[in-house]
Simulated assay, not measured.
Amino acid sequence: MPKPLTVGIAACSSEGAALCYRTICARAAQFLGAHAHPDIVLHSSSLAEYVGALERGDLPGVAQLMLHCAHRLAAAGADFVICPDNTIHAAFALMRDASPLPWLHIAQVVAAEAKRRGVRQAAILGTEWLMASDVYPSVLSKFGIPCQVPEPSERSEIGRIIMDELVNGVQEPASVQYLQDIIARMKERGCDCAILGCTELPIVLGDANSSLPTLDSTRLLADAALQHAISHCNSMSAAQP
């Protein structure tokens, strides 16, 4: 059987990258056999470098960090790249054409699933940078799906919870309750789905404790990467006489 493509993970936060990595490994066995998964290589620049660039509003700087990561992953043998971090996709267009490897875009993966599920209006939760950006609105609009973000004061507190707590592995019950309350308010505002547009949010939120159905950007990206990697096997097998 042909070998799957090698997945390159461009990591930002350790929590989001670890969940994505574990998901690929855990779900691959059903397709590839017990204990099997595609080869995976991971590179991570310091999260502080990304945060510094975002705080300065320096998207070209974010793009350079992404490109640096792509070159390191290419040198390590990756065939394509995923980044389990929604926020830095704001710089995606600035680095895409210069990248030595193709990337799967996290928002495109999530938006395709939203369309498949028949979402009519999505609530976007993520970092302050993500919620202020066009990362999700621009992609969702191509699928004909409108979206809303929380109010400014709500966005500030969500961002604090993510950057001060979740990326550091801290899970405060009061903070989880706050996030649940936000989703409930977004439901009242007409949303029928909550996009967990931060790869740490699925650690504490999901369908079981949300008043809206959720779209888990971390696991959806992992699933898309797995399918992309093993689709190579299928195409190679089909080409063989």
Score class of each variant (00 low, 15 high):
Gly61Val: 09
Trp103Gln: 09
Leu101Lys: 03
Leu226Asp: 11
His89Ile: 09
Gly169Phe: 15
Arg27Glu: 15
Val176Ile: 12
Leu19Glu: 09
Thr23Ser: 12
Ala11Cys: 07
Val135Met: 06
Phe31Asn: 03
Ala11Thr: 06
Lys142Arg: 10
Lys3Ser: 12
Gln227Cys: 13
Asn168Glu: 11
Pro213Met: 02
Asp181Tyr: 00
Asn86Trp: 06
Gly77Met: 05
Gly169Met: 12
Ala132His: 14
Val109Pro: 15
Leu215Trp: 07
Gln30Thr: 14
Ile195Pro: 11
Ala132Ile: 02
Ile124Lys: 09
Gln148Pro: 04
Asp79Ile: 13
Thr6His: 10
Ile106Gln: 10
Asp192His: 02
Gly57Leu: 08
Glu128Trp: 00
Leu67Trp: 04
Ala114Glu: 05
Leu94Arg: 10
Thr199Leu: 11
Glu55Pro: 03
Pro173Leu: 00
Gln148Asp: 14
Ala174Asn: 05
Ala26Trp: 01
Ala132Gln: 13
Asp207Phe: 02
Asn86Gln: 05
Arg219Met: 10
Ile145Trp: 01
Pro4Ala: 07
Tyr21Ser: 00
Cys147Thr: 07
Gln108Phe: 04
Ala17Thr: 02
His35Leu: 15
Leu226Thr: 08
Ala34Asn: 08
Leu212His: 01
Leu196Trp: 04
Gly57Asn: 06
Ala112Thr: 10
Gln177Val: 00
Cys191Asp: 02
Gly57Glu: 08
Lys142Ile: 01
Ile195Gly: 07
Leu140Tyr: 06
Asp134Ser: 15
Arg96Thr: 09
